[in-house]
């Protein structure tokens, strides 16, 4: 058993061994992608519901693709087409889903804690695809997988997360996962976007971008949610870009082997300059591919898949 729980709700709940175990399986699935037939019929006859209570394109497509490659039956269910807009409580929705005998639920919800709530009331496995600003464990896992492909063991490696930490579930999942694996995590952003108490989560807080990235091995650049911040947390996109944006000038100051990640979708020329986004230091498309593999691995493991049944990955870090 690689995973102890029936659910994956956050990296806070996983041990370092579980994280590495999932990434190992994901690497084996990643190898399947290069084959002409990329699906494996492991989940045939099982039903996965993708319940997206908040708009999402990338994460939803990534999950769908992972499920399809495992030959699962898929039901997609989003707020606009569900009865949640008619005032149904999450509990009622959950009980309806349970009555329909589904095998797995993937949930994206705007409320922190929603995934845990469903996991507590449902007998099936629940995968958190993002709950408010709380956690986004599959993003955290794919980020860690991407880092490990380049850096190997993350112990002592320096990872800097830049942007709106307050509202970022990606930041929280990265922080939990990376600190468990022994990486040194620095978060950086204007103080209006860095919440109190982060030091207790084991990370260093740095408001000056150059100091935050100088000796970093990895920059994880978060998306600025422009609609949320209109004139409150920072004065303008222009000033944000000047002070916290990853420009070619910033890249020049990085360690030569340092690379840049972004969970997408990007605001070009706000948190990241277009030249950098298209440049040689970014690994964004690797992140996307790893995302599908990580989700396949979780679905496989939560369905009781046997890790030994998969061929070991050829070149796994």
């Amino acid at each position: 058993m690689i995973l102890r729980s029936k659910d994956v709700l956050g990296l806070e709940d996983l041990t370092a061994e579980e994280i590495l175990g999932v990434i190992d399986i994901a690497s084996r699935f990643r190898a399947v992608f290069d084959r002409p037939v990329r699906s494996v019929p492991i989940m045939r006859g099982r039903t996965v519901v993708n319940f997206f209570h908040e708009p999402s394109t990338r994460t939803r497509i990534s999950f769908e693709l992972a499920e399809k490659r495992l030959s699962a039956d898929i039901v997609n269910f989003s707020t606009a087409t569900s009865s949640l807009s008619k005032g149904e409580t999450l509990r009622d929705t959950a009980e309806n889903l349970a009555a329909m005998k589904i095998d797995m639920l993937v949930i994206r919800h705007s409320s922190a804690g929603a995934a845990r709530y469903l996991a507590n009331v449902l007998a099936c496995s629940v995968i958190n695809a993002g709950d408010g600003p709380h956690e986004h464990p599959t993003q955290g896992l794919l980020d860690i997988m991407t880092m490990r492909q380049r850096l190997g063991d993350l112990r002592g490696r320096k990872v800097t997360i830049i942007g709106d930490i307050t509202h970022s579930r990606v930041a929280r999942s990265n922080i939990w996962g990376l600190t468990k694996l022994g990486a040194e995590v620095t978060v950086c952003g204007p103080p209006t976007m860095v919440p109190s108490g982060l030091d207790r989560m084991g990370v260093r807080v740095e408001y000056d971008l150059m100091r935050a990235v100088a000796d970093a091995d990895v920059l994880n650049v978060l998306r600025i949610q422009l609609e949320r911040h209109a004139s409150r947390s920072f004065p303008s996109n222009r000033e944000y870009h000047r002070m916290y944006g990853i420009s070619t000038d910033v890249v020049k100051k990085l360690k030569p082997e340092a690379f840049i990640m972004h969970p997408g979708p990007m605001n070009r020329d706000v948190e990241i300059a277009s030249e950098v986004a298209d440049g040689p230091r970014q690994v964004i498309l690797d992140q996307v591919a790893n995302g599908v593999a990580v989700r396949m691995a979780l679905i496989y493991l939560l369905s009781g898949g046997d890790p030994g049944a998969l061929a070991p990955a050829a070149a796994q870090a």
Binding site: A112, D131, G132, E135, T166, P195, M201
Partner: peptide, 8 residues
Amino acid sequence: YWATRLGL
């Protein structure tokens, strides 16, 4: 700390 950790 708890609001930060819980994402609330």
